[in-house]
């Protein structure tokens, strides 16, 4: 979703041809996402008209499913590929706007709480993934990439780390495929487990934010449970994303010591370069909302805009998941990923359940 290129200009979203090239894919994202929203509304309207109780399947799931159908049947047309890749951009814009729904004090309190859980989760993920990588004799750098992907924020963390530890393209694509496959599975599995355990929105959201690796999937898995759970998932995941620089730096220094990567000249600059800047925007909007800068109606408008932005994201999640391409990546990284993620999901679930017992 992102690369570790440090050159700032030219901007990814300029004007003219660069922008025009993105349009077809953005239109496809909108079409698929909107079709998902229409489907949810149509089913609800049908149920009301015929007085039957139909399961309320959120637009989130429809958008992902329609995206999956397109990408795994006719495929994403090449003219749309560049635009479809913008789904992460919409996710970030949506998260910034979602800040309007948080009181800054809550963000700092819950974010701080999440960060404590994140630190534990990071330690567990790195230990589990490293051990599994050794057992299954994966290349050491692939193991590092899987650990980074599982501990922080999936694809962007892997891509950020790839440059920092001089990993092969092949290792990076293996690790990304494993993380994406697991993300797709967790979308369907996590809400079922959450409902089976009768988890509160806050507990479920925190669990998703800690255990689902990719931000888009974490946002979707949270929103599938409830709006409130989606908010908590975004907050926990954002806190987790904020640690990306530290973990990637740690791995970079580890590989420098082993002679497998070029040195890091300026650690502070490195941390700033890897820091997800949209987190700052999220905090700033939350601060403005807390200070009463927006009226209630304006806050609702901004929250709705955030939902529209997420609509593009969820369509993108389906559109860029190609089952055959994932299957081609081989089974060993996937086995390590599945085993590791099961352990991480179980441990983080236990952490969240214990924490909720103490806080209630």
């Amino acid at each position: 979703m992102t690369s570790d290129v440090t050159v700032i200009s030219p901007p990814a979203f300029g004007i003219g041809t660069r922008y025009a090239r993105l349009l077809p894919g953005i239109v496809l994202l909108l079409l698929i996402g909107y079709l998902g929203k229409l489907t949810e509304q149509s089913i609800a309207a049908y149920g009301r008209a015929h007085q039957v109780t139909l399961p309320n399947i959120e637009y989130v799931l429809w958008a992902i499913v329609f995206g999956l159908i397109v990408s795994n049947t006719i495929g994403v047309p090449s003219i749309c590929e560049a635009g479809v890749e913008t789904y992460e951009f919409w996710l970030k814009a949506g998260i910034v706007l979602l800040g309007v729904r948080f009181v800054l004090g809550d963000v700092l309190r819950l974010g701080g709480l999440s960060l404590v859980a994140v630190v534990l989760e990071l330690a567990i993920s790195i230990v589990v993934m490293t051990a599994l990588g050794r057992v299954f004799k994966l290349p050491p750098k692939l193991t590092s990439l899987l650990s980074i992907g599982a501990s922080i924020c999936g694809v962007s963390a892997i891509i950020a780390a790839k440059g920092a530890i001089d990993a092969d393209d092949e290792d990076a694509s293996y690790a990304i495929a494993a993380i994406l496959a697991l993300g797709a599975v967790s979308l369907f599995l996590f809400p079922v487990i959450g409902h089976a355990l009768g988890m509160s929105d806050a507990s479920y959201g925190l669990w998703v934010g800690l255990a689902v690796d990719n931000t888009a999937e974490a946002t979707a898995a949270g929103a599938l449970y409830s709006d409130a759970a989606g908010k908590f998932a975004v907050l926990a995941k954002t806190a987790r994303n904020a640690t990306i620089g530290f973990v990637v730096l740690g791995y970079a220094l580890y590989w420098v010591r082993r002679g497998g990567a070029a040195g890091v000249a300026n650690k502070a600059a490195f941390l700033w370069q890897k820091f997800p800047k949209f987190v700052l925007g999220f905090l700033l909007i939350s601060g403005l909302a807390t200070a009463g800068f927006f009226t209630r109606a304006q806050s609702t408008d901004l929250a709705n805009l955030s939902r529209w932005a997420f609509l593009f994201t969820f369509a993108g999640v389906g559109l860029r998941t190609n089952v055959r391409a994932l299957a081609r990546q081989g089974w060993r990284p996937l086995v390590v990923g599945v085993a590791g993620e099961c352990v991480i999901a179980t441990v983080t679930l236990a952490m969240v359940l214990i924490a909720s017992r103490f806080s209630s």
Partner: peptide
């Protein structure tokens, strides 16, 4: 790329927020 995309997302979100604040954007339905 990461830097610029992140910043552009922030710029877009704040532009939208400014438009909403100034009343330049009509009510956003969902």
């Amino acid at each position: 790329m990461q830097l610029s995309r992140d910043w552009w997302a922030v710029v877009l979100a704040f532009t939208a927020a400014l438009f909403v604040k100034l009343g330049a954007l009509p009510h956003v339905p969902w």
